[in-house]
Design a protein around this nucleic acid. Sequence first.
DNA 1: CATCCGCAATGGTCGTACCATTGCGCCGGA
DNA 2: TCCGGCGCAATGGTACGACCATTGCGGATG
Lengths: 265, 265
Amino acid sequence: MGYERSTIDGERSNRTVALAAEFGRMITSGDLLSGDALPTEKEIQSHHGVSRTVVREAIRHLAAKGLVSVGPKVGTKVRPRIAWNMLDADVMAWHLTAPVRRPFIEALYEMRLINEPNAARLAARRIDEAQSERLRRALGGMRDYPRGSAELIAADLDFHRIVLEATGNPLLVSLGSLIERSLSVSFSLSWRQNPQDETVRQHDRVMQAILSGDGDAAELFMRRLIESAFDDVIHALYANGEEETRSGGAPDARKIAEPRPSGAA
Amino acid sequence: MGYERSTIDGERSNRTVALAAEFGRMITSGDLLSGDALPTEKEIQSHHGVSRTVVREAIRHLAAKGLVSVGPKVGTKVRPRIAWNMLDADVMAWHLTAPVRRPFIEALYEMRLINEPNAARLAARRIDEAQSERLRRALGGMRDYPRGSAELIAADLDFHRIVLEATGNPLLVSLGSLIERSLSVSFSLSWRQNPQDETVRQHDRVMQAILSGDGDAAELFMRRLIESAFDDVIHALYANGEEETRSGGAPDARKIAEPRPSGAA
DNA sequence: CATCCGCAATGGTCGTACCATTGCGCCGGA
DNA sequence: TCCGGCGCAATGGTACGACCATTGCGGATG
């Protein structure tokens, strides 16, 4: 609470955002490759029936995220994938709604696996009383709300967000928006193969460790928690057998899926 | 090579970007607090002598980064700090050029300390031949170029970027832009209190570990490397005694300034 | 054949006009 | 007096049309 909705774009849906999302998805999904030129502003205007204002603001939106570069005479061109700001909520959302998203989801969970256990460790040292209380309430929500309900999802999300906030590091807090997306994917795939009890228990262990100031335990339990979620998602992706629509990179996507063969740190 | 410049905004300097940067800095530096309203578009137009197009595109730029939200009748308002996308190169740059930046720099290095050692571990398992060669060349550059030269800075930056690229994780690659900013801060403060030889040796140890596939060593050495850089920056910040220019929050800025009472990890 | 210059394409900026949404106050009824 | 609905007006959203600035490219020139 005391927090604004963070919708897919931080503002209401209007033509500018819709147009930006359309091109954003085209770019992230690979329909437009690095160096490819977008249509000229004039062409986009006539094709989409919008004014140049909308076109320009939409392109500015994309440029702000590093997806395109613009310049007189050269037009609007797609920047190399490496220059994109993947750590942007919109860019991430566009990736996650693309037809081929498995590698991206795996990368996302790998990122969580690196950051959230460490965040839990820091949170154990720095969490304050108000945050502790919010954490307890979030866990209570996870325990009480029915499986798959919107409240449960919100509670789960809150839990992770509060841990990140408790680190006091604004950069880690910003990761919250990424986790939000990844959770929404988990839910859309099939929520938690694991029994809800087990999931709650895992969260509870993390919370107890943080509240008692045990950084090592917090890190360990958070790692296990995310690994479980990771396994769920990977399992669901393979089970559903979705997205073979790409060239043929399905098999070696598995390579990325294994972040650490033996235990850890 | 094979890479576009990633300037401060990904595009050339124009009035839109300049205006966005002006408000961006005002917001990140705390001159405008959460909930505060920016001037209306009309006021900004007359005050800055620019057209409404420029104003709107600039605000769109800020909205894309989560700094503001806009709406009819309500105007443009600053969003809570927690909603900002700190993991954006522009937002980060604005923070780093703000009068009070010490806490942010410390958060940035803490973030590096979490991610880069893990990235080094992953790189040790996944780096390919081309990346290995680029890594060797970057290290050579760090050894050969004179202290403080632009080439040295570029080589240092390349080194870290290549390690992140070698993870194959696009999200980690995006962290490269953050590291770019943090390095530029290091340089602006006073480059590497440490002797250059020692710095090169640290990088060399990381590289050897990665090239030999020793993930544990790569992680360890990368951690030490970043801790050294962290110490340098902290030391320089305290030595320079900069940024007491704020209202009166100078003393308790120290509280945030101590991310790790005793050693760590 | 090399160099320079000018054209034209394309984004950059500007100004105006009108539409859409919504906060807020006015007005009428209970 | 209090409450609720309704309309005004402020503000952003969209749309045109014009002109400026930059730059790729090809033709003119030595």
